[in-house]
Amino acid sequence: MDHPTDEVLFEKHRRGDLNAFRTLIERHQNDLLRFLFRLVGDQAGAEDVFQESFLQAHLAAHTFDMERRFRPWLYTIAANKARDHLRKKGRRKTLDLSAPIDGGSSSDSGDGSSGSFMDLMEVHVPPPDAGLDRAETSEQVQSVLDSMPYTLREILLLAYFQRLSYVQIADELGIPLGTVKSRLHSAVATFAKRWKATLDREGVSRDDLEADDRP
């Protein structure tokens, strides 16, 4: 069955084939929406930004370099639109009351991790089919993401959703390679530290979670 690439479809769209653009929208709908949901924190906002992103892709179609890949380009547009959306909304990020308040010192005051380094092997991640309710886990993850600075959240989500190399991320975001590396290191450490603090604060110890996982 004919399965044209994103780039071929986008080129068709540039030549006036709107149906090709519909295929692109349908093809990226689920992944991009999940990415945006994580970035802006609510579905209505994510759907608004989703539409804005495709509109922008249409408006900037002439600037797209056909030698490049469409998907990273679209995600970069979406990340920028998400930033605008949050800025317009005047919401730096409403902190969830359960989110860590002190980003720098929460772990020092009792989560057991070192103040300077985050060791990922100390972090518990529930398996996808864990007894802990998936929706609840997703909400906790969202709460932690919401509490992170936008730049860290953005690079973390771009990396995980897109699976890009450092060079590609640097290229898409227009920032130096070294900055990409250090920022992603920091993003993973921040997320892990706050995730651990969230579990600790809610009294969910690793042992409890593992006990939940058992049949």
Binding site: G103, G104, G115, F117, M118, S186, V188, T190
Partner: peptide, 13 residues
């Protein structure tokens, strides 16, 4: 928050 304030990763991580 500043990125500089954020925790670093374990070197092996």
């Amino acid at each position: 928050l500043n990125i500089e304030d954020e925790p670093g990763l374990h070197p092996e991580d």
